[in-house]
Simulated scan of single mutants.
Amino acid sequence: MVDKSLLKSWFNEGKNLGKLGKYEDAIKCFDEAIKIDPNYALAWYSKGTVLENLRRYKEAKICYNKVKRTMSSNMKKEFSL
């Protein structure tokens, strides 16, 4: 069973750290969220965005591909994937 509260905490911490430019710490938080729910598309997407900020484009692409595999078609349109 997925602990939604813990999942949300890790994700929100990652978003906050990313906004502060603490990208490596943000990645760690997104990884923790992904450990809880490997199909959490928003965590994969956010991790990809942070990786792009670090110019780690190959790793970012892996994250975006994971998003594509886990999202519904309507959500893909919203994210332009």
Score class of each variant (00 low, 15 high):
residue 6 L to I: 03
residue 57 Y to T: 08
residue 64 Y to K: 06
residue 78 E to L: 15
residue 1 M to A: 14
residue 6 L to M: 07
residue 63 C to R: 06
residue 67 V to R: 00
residue 40 Y to Q: 04
residue 7 L to F: 02
residue 9 S to G: 04
residue 32 E to Q: 10
residue 1 M to G: 13
residue 54 L to D: 02
residue 63 C to W: 07
residue 3 D to S: 01
residue 11 F to S: 01
residue 46 S to Y: 04
residue 4 K to L: 06
residue 77 K to W: 01
residue 46 S to C: 12
residue 60 A to H: 00
residue 1 M to F: 10
residue 24 E to V: 08
residue 81 L to K: 04
residue 50 V to F: 07
residue 36 I to T: 12
residue 64 Y to T: 06
residue 29 C to M: 06
residue 6 L to E: 11
residue 61 K to C: 13
residue 27 I to D: 03
residue 10 W to C: 07
residue 57 Y to G: 07
residue 63 C to V: 01
residue 22 K to V: 10
residue 17 L to Y: 03
residue 35 K to P: 06
residue 43 A to M: 01
residue 8 K to D: 14
residue 55 R to G: 07
residue 51 L to M: 13
residue 39 N to V: 14
residue 52 E to S: 11
residue 30 F to S: 06
residue 76 K to D: 06
residue 49 T to A: 13
residue 10 W to A: 05
residue 66 K to S: 11
residue 40 Y to G: 04
residue 30 F to A: 08
residue 20 L to P: 03
residue 50 V to R: 09
residue 51 L to R: 14
residue 12 N to T: 05
residue 73 S to A: 12
residue 60 A to Q: 00
residue 63 C to E: 05
residue 37 D to C: 00
residue 44 W to V: 15
residue 27 I to K: 01
residue 56 R to I: 00
residue 51 L to A: 10
residue 81 L to N: 05
residue 45 Y to T: 04
residue 44 W to N: 14
residue 75 M to F: 08
residue 9 S to N: 15
residue 69 R to F: 13
residue 47 K to P: 00
residue 28 K to Y: 12
residue 24 E to C: 04
residue 15 K to R: 09
residue 42 L to A: 09
residue 74 N to Q: 12
residue 18 G to P: 02
residue 63 C to P: 00
residue 28 K to F: 07
residue 78 E to F: 09
residue 35 K to N: 10
residue 18 G to L: 04
residue 72 S to M: 02
residue 71 M to P: 03
residue 27 I to H: 01
residue 11 F to P: 01
residue 1 M to V: 12
residue 71 M to G: 03
residue 51 L to Q: 14
residue 13 E to A: 13
residue 6 L to P: 01
residue 16 N to P: 00
residue 36 I to R: 14
residue 44 W to F: 12
residue 23 Y to C: 04
residue 3 D to P: 02
residue 47 K to A: 07
residue 50 V to Q: 09
residue 49 T to Y: 14
residue 14 G to Y: 01
residue 2 V to H: 06
residue 78 E to C: 07
residue 54 L to T: 01
residue 18 G to H: 06
residue 1 M to W: 14
residue 39 N to A: 07
residue 19 K to C: 05
residue 45 Y to M: 14
residue 11 F to C: 00
residue 3 D to I: 00
residue 11 F to K: 02
residue 21 G to I: 00
residue 22 K to P: 12
residue 35 K to E: 13
residue 6 L to S: 07
residue 18 G to K: 05
residue 80 S to V: 10
residue 58 K to S: 13
residue 25 D to M: 13
residue 51 L to F: 13
residue 16 N to A: 13
residue 36 I to K: 11
residue 39 N to M: 11
residue 74 N to V: 13
residue 51 L to T: 09
residue 29 C to Y: 02
residue 4 K to E: 12
residue 35 K to D: 11
